[in-house]
Computed example of a mutant assay.
Amino acid sequence: MLPRVQDSPQERARALYLTGETTIIACRQDPRFSFMLYVPESAWSEPERTLDLLVSVHGTMRLQSLYRGAFSGFGRFNNCVVLAPLFPVGVRGDMEAGGYKYMIEGDIRYDEVLLAMVEQAGELINRRFEKFMLFGFSGGGHFTHRFLYLHPERLKAVSIGAPGSVTLLDETMDWWPGIRNFGEVFGRGIDFTALKDVRVHMSVGALDTEEWEITFPENSPKFIPGANSAGRNRNHRLHALRESLEARGVDVWHDTVPGVTHDMMGVFPYVESFFTGVLRDRLPAPGAR
């Protein structure tokens, strides 16, 4: 959407900064964090149409633009806003890179930061997103399945991509390998009824088999008994996560992608296919308006 000479200043600003691929926007609740959006033109030209939201969470390298850009075409053709958050390394001055993956870092609750971003994005485009779709790969896959445990009532669907470590629904281990003390850590339990209502997808490359980066030695700050219990590599650990969810009555669609290593774009066609299926029932027939 291009601004026109006759547009008001508000309309020109909207066309430049809140349509298509936006600039980076500070999170109002905590400006240490930020997000960028893809907003389809139809959000403004057809305000009566249903508008969905998909949140795409980066991995450890923080390639925020890649995670937004991968879904821009999907957003355009499915009338869907895309929100890509940025959780920088070292927000507490310590160069810690993994805090967001485990939901809590000092006084930061990353799930609450994301919910604040979702609310703020809705206000910017005059919508409310009571439920949304969530994707994350690698470090974002950590975030995605743990956010699912905390807020299943806010999620329509999730796609969990190749996390390096997983939290199993295992009440014999403490957080983070298990959930025995989940209520003490987060001040709330897991709503297993709501969890079963979320459509869940998992993806991993068949060649995603390296172990060195995801094995926790006993002197690691993140080590806790059970840290390595879900398997040696990302394929093993995602398989264990799927079995853990299925044991609780959650249906899981699991794609192991042949010929792909630890590569978000390698699994992306399967992710996009999943989310397209999620939205298919509410989309008009091809060519319909």
Score class of each variant (00 low, 15 high):
residue 191 D to P: 12
residue 252 V to Y: 01
residue 152 P to M: 12
residue 145 H to W: 08
residue 256 T to W: 11
residue 159 S to F: 13
residue 257 V to A: 06
residue 220 S to G: 04
residue 202 M to P: 07
residue 191 D to F: 11
residue 217 P to W: 08
residue 115 L to N: 09
residue 216 F to M: 15
residue 173 M to K: 15
residue 237 R to D: 05
residue 221 P to C: 05
residue 229 S to G: 13
residue 196 K to Y: 07
residue 114 L to I: 03
residue 117 M to R: 00
residue 246 E to S: 09
residue 142 H to A: 03
residue 175 W to C: 01
residue 244 S to R: 00
residue 248 R to W: 11
residue 140 G to Q: 08
residue 216 F to R: 14
residue 148 L to D: 01
residue 206 A to T: 11
residue 177 P to T: 05
residue 109 R to V: 05
residue 191 D to R: 07
residue 149 Y to S: 04
residue 181 N to E: 09
residue 182 F to M: 08
residue 127 R to F: 02
residue 206 A to V: 08
residue 137 F to A: 04
residue 120 Q to T: 05
residue 213 E to T: 14
residue 128 R to I: 05
residue 178 G to P: 04
residue 132 F to N: 01
residue 170 D to H: 04
residue 121 A to C: 04
residue 113 V to K: 02
residue 256 T to F: 14
residue 156 K to P: 06
residue 162 A to W: 08
residue 253 W to K: 14
residue 166 V to Y: 04
residue 160 I to L: 04
residue 159 S to L: 13
residue 129 F to L: 01
residue 254 H to Y: 15
residue 230 A to V: 10
residue 124 L to E: 02
residue 241 L to F: 01
residue 252 V to N: 01
residue 110 Y to R: 06
residue 214 I to T: 13
residue 180 R to S: 13
residue 220 S to L: 08
residue 173 M to I: 06
residue 257 V to M: 03
residue 200 V to T: 11
residue 166 V to R: 00
residue 137 F to E: 01
residue 111 D to N: 07
residue 148 L to Y: 03
residue 254 H to Q: 09
residue 130 E to W: 02
residue 125 I to W: 00
residue 238 L to N: 10
residue 201 H to P: 12
residue 144 T to N: 07
residue 208 D to T: 10
residue 205 G to M: 09
residue 142 H to F: 11
residue 173 M to P: 00
residue 192 F to W: 08
residue 182 F to L: 00
residue 162 A to R: 08
residue 215 T to M: 11
residue 214 I to A: 01
residue 234 R to N: 07
residue 177 P to R: 10
residue 154 R to I: 09
residue 184 E to V: 09
residue 233 N to F: 07
residue 124 L to T: 00
residue 155 L to S: 05
residue 231 G to P: 02
residue 253 W to C: 12
residue 184 E to T: 14
residue 152 P to H: 11
residue 153 E to M: 08
residue 192 F to C: 06
residue 242 R to F: 07
residue 252 V to W: 01
residue 237 R to I: 08
residue 111 D to V: 02
